[in-house]
Each structure stands twice: as C-alpha cells, then as structure tokens.
Design a protein around this nucleic acid. Structure first.
Length: 881
RNA sequence: GCGGCUGUAGCUCAGAGGGAGAGCACUACCUUGACACGGUAGGGGUCACAGGUUCGAUUCCUGUCAGCCGCACCA
C-alpha cells in the first residue's frame, strides 16, 4: 500500500476487505497504552445466529465512530464485541428446521441431543453476523470476543443467581405470568406487547343456587368461566349488597361459587359484577388471594381448554370461546354482547396472544435493586443522550414489577437450583450438585428451566471483562465509558445492566448511554420481515461500500430520533466519498517529486491560503467538540460542508492559479496548504468513513503508519486569521455578483469579459487587488481593473457589493433593457431591506433595550444597504439618460 | 389516563432569541486539464394554529390541532 497514485474511480470492493484485514491482523483494534486514560464500550451483543440489519449497522457505526475518535485522541481504547445466545429466537429457529427437515420435535430428540443440535447450529451460523460487522469496518477487539454462553460468562450468571438468591432477591413462586402458548414459555412483562383490538363484552347471567334470581357478569373471556371461583361486586354497590355471601351455580358446569365483595370492582364498568378467575387473570389472582379462594386452571400450556371445561375440553382458546358463547346463548344465559376495544397482550417475538397463566416461576425482586439504581442515577452517575430518556428510565424503575426470569426452554443457562426428592427443599449452588445441601440425599433433580436471555445480557459489561474474577481488563476498562443502543431496548437491557452493575460492582456499568432511534423505510414505516420492506445492509455495502452506508447513517442521525433509509441518501453519501477521492487525486497529481512543505505561518501565504487554514482550524474545533458530545450528525455536517463547499469548490479552484503558474515558491506554498488540509480532513473523517480515508492516507507522501493510529487533528498550529476570512468572503461576494450578472444577462460562459471594479476606499481596493487573478479565473474575465473614482462606462452591467461597484463593460453584447429590468428588481429588493431596518431603528425601545452591538450591527447593515441602493439608483438614472 | 417525540422548501431533514438552511427533486447554462457520483446561476417556505414573555419569537412558555411512540390499564 505504498503507491502514490489513486485510480480514477474509487472502488470500495477492492479496498475495504483488504484494509480491514491489515487492521485486524496488525492488532490495531487492541487497546494501546494511552496517556489520556481509557475509553471502553461493550457492543450490544446481536443474536449469535442472526443476520445484520440496518439497526445493527447504525448501532455499530456510532460505536465505531466513538471508538476511532477516542483512539485517535490517544485514549487506550477497548471495544468488546460479542454475541448473545438469544434463547427463544435461536431455539425456535432450530425447532423449525428440525420440524421441516426431519419432522421431529425437540421432545423427540430429548433435551441433551437437542441442545447439542443448537450448539451445532450456532457453530454453523455463528460467524455470519460477526463477519458482517467486520464488513462494516468495526474496530472492535475481536481477540476479546465473547458469547453469553461462554464458560466465563456462564460462571458470572451462576454467581449472580446464587448471590441474589442468598440475599433473598431471587425467589420462586406460584404467580400469574405471561405465557406464550406457541413458544410454550413464560415471558417477562416487557416481552408482551399490548395491542388495542376490537373485542366483545359478553353479559352472562349467572343464576343463584337458591333460585332466588341471578347476577349478570360482564366478561371478554367467557372461555375461562370454567375456572371461575367467585363473582365479585363492589362492597358499596347497593344494587348487589343483598347478594354478597350467596352462592352462584356456574352455568355449563355443576359447580357453585360464592358472591364476594371487593373494592377492586368498578361499579360503572359493565354490569358491576365481575367473575373471578384467579388462574387466568392477574387482577383476579390478587382478589383470590385476598379472599382465600382456590385457583383453578382451565387452560393448558398450549392454550387449550382442560378437562375442567367438560365437553369443551381440548378446544383451543379461540374455538372454545365461540362454542362456549354458543352454548350460553342456547341455554339462555347470554344476555347481550357489546363491542369493546381493549388492549390484548401479544408475544413480542411470535405475535401470539399471550395467556395470563398461573405457574411456578423464578422471579427477581426488583424493588431494592431499582431503588439503589434510581438513587445513583439521580445523583448523576448516569447520563443519557438525549437526556429526556432519564425520565423514561426513572419512571420505569419506579413502577417496575418483579422480573420473571425462568423460561421453559432448553437453550440457555439452566437454572442452578436442585430439588430434593427426600426433604423437598431447594438447593441453589454455583457448582452442579449431586446431593441435597439440606439433607444430603442424592435424590436431587435440577430445575428444568433456563434463565431469560436478558438475565445474562444484563451482566454483559462486567461478565465480558472476566467478572467475578478480578481481571486486569475489569480493573482497567470497567465501568465502561459509553453504551450505544436503540431506545427500544432501554428497559430490556440498559435498565437491567444498570441495576445488575450497581448491585454487583457497586458502580454504574457505563457513564453515558447514547440512545439512537430506529430505522424506517423511505415511507417512514418500521422495517420488518413480514412487510418485506427491510433493507439488507449487505446489499448496500455491495453496491456502494461500507463507508457510504456509514456516512449516510451517521450524517443523518439525530440522537434519539428515528431515521428513514433511502437509496438517495446513500447515493448522496457515495457522492461525497467520490468528491473526497477526487480532491485527493487532484492534490496528489499536483505534488512534485520530493516535495517539501513550507511553514504554515509563512508571511507569504496568499489570502486564500490563510482563509482555508483558518476555516480548517474552525472546522477541527467544531467537529471535535461535537464528537466530544457524541453529536455525530453535527460533526459530520461540519466536515462535509467544509470539505465540499470551501475546500473543493473554492480553495482547489483557487489553487490552480498557483499550481499552473510559474512561480515555484507560490506553487510549493499552495501544495503545502493542499496537503495540510487534505490530510487533516482525512483524519477528521476517518471515524465515519475509515476505509476510503485510510486508502488515501496510505497514498499521501507526508504520512507514516496507518490512519487508524494517527493523532486526532489539532488546530493549534494553524494560523488564525479572522481578517482573511472576511476579505475572502468579500472576494467571493464579488465573484458571485459577476457570475450572477453573467448568468442573468446570458453572457455565454465562453465569452471572456473585461471587468472594472470601482472601490470607494483604499482598504477595499487593497483587498480586491489581492484577488484580481482569482476573479479573473472564476469569472472568465480577460482583464480585471481596479480603480478609485471611475467614470462608469455607458454600455455596461453593474453590480453593487459592499464597498465596490463592479462594471462589466460590453458594448453591444449586453441587452440594456434586460439590464434596466435587473437593476429595478435589485433596487426593489434593497428598498425593502432599507425600509425594514429603518423601521427597526426608529423603534426607541429597540435602540434602548437591545444590546449595543446588535444595534450597531443593524445600523451598519442599514448604511450598507443605503449605499448599495443609491448606487443602483444612480446607475438606473444614468442609463435612462 | 400518564409521559414523551414530531410538525420548517415538492420530498427527506438540519438549525437557532436579532436578515429562513442543506441534500434530493426542479429550471437554465456548462463535457473548463480532481470529480457529470461534477460545476455555475436560479425558482420555491405566513418555519402547523392561537395566545403569552420580549425592544424583537420560526426559536422560549401555555394552549389547540395533526401524526407518531412509550407506560399503565376496567373485566
């Protein structure tokens, strides 16, 4: 990679994989010894057998930008990559394949063989997503790659489980949980998505046993009536006061149930009579507990009616409902049906309607954990970007309920609890047990269930670094500096890492949490497999390269806000890369053999040189400070605008004067500025577009080593020259004015014109004199004359800018009517400005109360517009005559 | 019900208490020795609406409307 020329077209395909290999093989991703301290990130682990989607691409890009930026700043930088075993998703996938290919269920294989199959699956597909992350250019330290089911991480899981159990923060209990009949497992509250759906509220007559009448209950779930254990009314509801204590004969069954009074009942809803089904409704469960009612179960793990439902046994929930309603109607129990919209819980993963289900599960007691974490967060130990997420975070932790952590799966960390057949006690242990810790009996059996995947993910920031061992990495890189993830997993992951970190390490696991938005398609729809509107990031990389994808994502990012993908935006990013590439080509092809730079503060530097160096300095400062705040969009825009508008459109064009001229020293000077600006721009852009910048960097004569290891650009040695910027802007104004005239009067670009510039003051004249060559080049002028008080040429177009009148004398070529029309338009515009400012300055309140500099500024503007206006009017008058 | 986000050019979106911006699209012109994935010039916006604070609001505050997202739910 030492060639000093670049091909005419940038081809990301031939560059990206080659450079990535050099970086990875060369150990450039591993932390260096850094004087500035450490910077660490752990990667949100994607599903080990998954494939990359655009959300990952954004997430990875943002992390890589932060990592590369800090690395270049001199931090000892660690970015830990890894993958997640993703319990339900992975197991479901393997089960599906098993079913499709062999017609078998996991039960046909048995637990051990099935788990082996999943491991084999993981071995086969586990590399896909990590290789895709590599294609993105992620500079994470693969030598530290982790998997949530690695021995070390599994040990951390056991340690945490056992300690929480010993502290009484993990318990086992018979409670109502969310059950997915399709995944056949319990879910935590946040794995349930509530969707508003139209439903029916059935009013059903429940007769009293003594035949003295009936109560009408209202329910949306008549199929659970077989598990009813009571009918409840509000204690203060006079309508029903006399019924309390009586007995109901449950329709379609031969059971009887009591009428009870409980304040949970809303008198205004439905009929004010509520059937109580403790095993199938969380609220009913609590009512049942209060009244010491039994819990009957009428739905099984597949969501089918049990024998309790008598002749309806074996029916699915859906069919059961229909048939039960039918039967109730036939037997005269159904009073009425009314439509009712209500939120129905769906399995986050498979979309199946979730069943509230009474079962024995393991839980984490959240209150104490949440409390500690809240206090620390409020003390400022955790910062969110954007900070509004702190409120969401606090709110969730404040209301959080106990976390159901057991899953009825085989793939995952098996719960380290053993049940004794002899004494019936539970033994929880870090090591596998072959005897009961209470009675010593060898008749012990390990719990069949595994832990929620998020239980192990929650330990990720410290388990990846070796915890519970006191490893050097843990000491050096924990707590981590930054966490980057989508706001959609704030509760799932961020909050859980926070309280686990606080509880087990005594520290927040990260200082700053950067939450980005979700990716949507061009129409703003959420991308999903079922809609088929998902974009495969690998397709984007194939077509345009990883850099284009990264730049598109990063430059369009506003933290916390969703982002629409569009191919046009990728093309925009690609165009910018092409611009950069060609600017680099230009610089390189205009460098002489054995070129040696001049000092950057040489007094002989031209106006444009001083301008661009000053602006470079400002851009460096702006980009650096934006990146310090992780405002990647802002930093990207700053460098983009500088590179394209100021460097390419103005400075490079200007540079051609000296490069193609015959003044050797001027040429060397220009070369110096070009290479200085280019190399620093490359460094500024490297975190965003690492491949192309590295490729160009390798071709530069003034660089050593790799850009990934280079020092973040500094503005300290760049000359500061505010005046040069002002003067340059004046020159630009003149050039634009001339171009505007030429365009409006339709002077063909090829027609070279003379330009006469009249300047009122010596100061302006001095400036304009410095840039006549530039004006000539940019405006295709055959001659540029600068004079003091000139006699305006008769047949000429005129433009008035601050301090100067520009004439383009072109007898015969200019349509004088068009020129008069143009001047009229210009005069009107100026009049408007003058009037606006006069009005403003006539306002005594403004003059008195606004800051002096603002008033002065406005006065200056007014004077300027007045001068321009009178010049234009003068010219109009002279043309009339 | 509680909380939050968004509303700026045809489209996608930045922005900021003192003269409305970018990219794409559009119009005209230009194959000028880095780049047509380019250049030059241009058209186009009551900054959702109504109040308030202020000398001054598109920007800050309140409310309204519209779109979206969390959380919590009464079966």
């Amino acid at each position: 990679m030492t060639e000093r020329t670049l091909s005419t077209v940038y081809d990301p395909k031939s560059v990206e994989s080659r450079i990535y290999e050099v970086w990875e093989r060369g150990g450039h991703f591993a932390p260096r010894e850094g004087a500035r301290g450490t910077f660490s990130i752990v990667m949100p682990p994607p599903n080990v057998t998954g494939v990359l989607h655009l959300g990952h691409a954004l997430d990875t890009t943002l992390q890589d930008i932060a990592t590369r930026f800090r690395r270049m700043q001199g931090y000892s930088t660690l970015w830990v990559p890894g993958t997640d075993h993703a319990g339900i998703a992975t197991q479901a996938r393997v089960e599906q394949v098993l079913r499709e290919e062999e017609g078998k269920s996991r039960y046909d294989l048995g637990r051990e063989a099935f788990v082996e199959r999943v491991w084999a699956w993981k071995e086969q597909y586990g590399g896909t997503i990590t290789s895709q992350i590599r294609s993105l250019g992620a500079s994470c330290d693969w030598s530290r790659e982790r998997f949530t089911m690695d021995p070390g991480l599994s040990r951390a899981v056991r340690e945490v489980f056992v300690r929480l159990y010993e502290e009484g923060l993990i318990y086992r209990g018979n409670r109502i949980i969310n059950w997915c009949p399709r995944c056949r497992t319990a879910l935590s509250d946040i794995e349930v998505e509530h969707i508003e759906e139209p439903g029916v509220l059935y009013h059903v007559r429940y007769p009293l046993e003594d035949g003295s009448g009936h109560l009408v209950i209202a329910t949306t779930r008549p199929e659970t009536m077989f598990a009813d254990v009571a009918v409840a009314v509000h204690p203060d509801d006079e309508r029903y006061a006399s019924y309390v204590g009586k007995t109901i004969r449950l329709p379609l069954t031969d059971r009887t149930i009591p009428v009870i009074a409980d304040t949970y009942v809303e008198r205004d809803f439905g009929t004010g009579c509520l059937k109580i089904t403790p095993a199938h409704d969380p609220n009913d469960f609590e009512v049942g507990e209060r009244h010491h009612l039994p819990s009957l179960v009428c739905l099984d793990q597949d969501g089918r009616l049990t024998d309790l439902a008598g002749r309806f046994a074996g029916l699915s929930r859906e069919e059961g409902r229909e048939r039960v309603v039918e039967a109730l109607r036939e037997e005269g129990y159904l009073v009425k049906e009314e439509p009712l919209d209500h939120a129905v819980g769906h399995c986050d993963r498979c979309g199946t309607v979730v069943e509230p289900y009474l079962s024995e599960q393991w839980f984490v007691r959240m209150e104490p954990l949440a409390q500690d974490t809240l206090e620390r967060a409020r003390r400022g130990e955790l910062r969110f970007l954007p900070d509004r997420f702190m409120k969401v975070f606090e709110q969730w932790l404040t209301n959080v309920r106990d976390w159901c952590i057991s899953r009825q799966l085989w793939w995952g960390h098996r719960i380290p609890a053993w049940y004794c057949g002899a004494c019936g006690q539970v033994s929880v242990s870090r090591d596998d047990l072959d005897h009961c810790l209470h009675c010593g009996s060898q008749d012990v059996q390990q719990d069949e269930d595994v832990l929620d995947t998020w239980f192990s993910s929650a330990l990720w920031p410290f388990s990846t670094m070796g915890w519970p061992e006191r490893t050097p990495d843990l000491a050096r890189f924990y707590p981590t500096s930054l966490l980057v993830t989508g706001y959609d997993i704030l509760f799932f992951w961020v909050a859980r890492m926070a309280f686990m970190g606080v509880h087990f390490t005594g520290q927040m696991p990260f200082q700053t949490v950067l939450l980005h938005g979700l990716l949507r398609d061009a129409k703003g729809q959420k991308m999903s497999k079922s809609k088929g509107n998902g974009i495969d990031p690998m397709d984007v990389i194939d077509k345009y390269g990883a850099d284009a994808l990264r730049f598109m994502l990063a430059s369009n990012t506003v933290l916390g806000n969703d982002l629409r993908f569009s191919w046009e935006k990728v093309e925009g990013a690609r165009n910018f890369l092409n611009k950069l590439w060609n600017a680099a080509r230009f610089v390189l092809m205009n460098l002489d053999e054995g070129f040696s730079p001049v000092p950057l503060d040489a007094p002989s530097l031209d106006l444009a040189d001083r301008f661009i160096l000053h602006r470079l300095g400002e851009t460096i400062r702006r980009a650096t400070s934006a990146l310090e705040d992780y405002d990647v969009g802002e930093a990207a825009r700053a460098v983009y605008e500088f590179t394209w508008d100021e460097f390419c459109d103005w400075y490079i064009e200007f540079a051609k004067i000296n490069l193609y001229g015959d003044h050797a020293e001027k040429k060397r000077q220009t070369q110096t500025v070009l290479i200085t600006v280019l190399s620093r721009v490359l460094a500024l852009l490297h975190p965003y577009i690492p491949f192309i910048t590295e490729e160009i960097w390798q071709a530069l004569p003034n660089t050593t080593g790799m850009l990934i290891d280079a020092v973040w650009p500094d503005a300290a040695d760049l000359p500061v020259d505010e005046r040069a910027v002002e003067q340059m802007r004046a020159a630009m104004e003149i050039i634009r004015a001339v171009r505007n005239v030429r365009s409006e009067l339709q002077i063909p670009p090829k027609t070279s014109v003379p330009i006469v510039i009249g300047c009122d003051t010596e100061g302006v004249r001095g400036v304009v004199n410095q840039v006549t060559e530039m004006i000539a080049r940019f405006c295709n002028a055959e001659r540029v004359d600068v004079e003091a008080g000139i006699e305006p040429p008769k047949q000429a177009a005129v433009q008035v800018v601050t301090g100067a009148k520009i004439y383009i004398p072109l007898a015969g070529l200019i349509d004088m009517d068009a020129e008069r029309e143009r001047l009229k338009k210009e005069a009107n515009r100026l009049k408007g400005e003058v009037e606006r400012l006069e009005k403003k300055l006539a306002n005594a309140n403004f003059v008195q109360r606004a800051p002096q500099e603002v008033v002065a500024q406005e006065r200056e503007k007014l004077a300027d517009y007045r001068a321009k206006l009178s010049a234009v009017e003068e010219r109009m008058a002279s043309l009339e005559g």
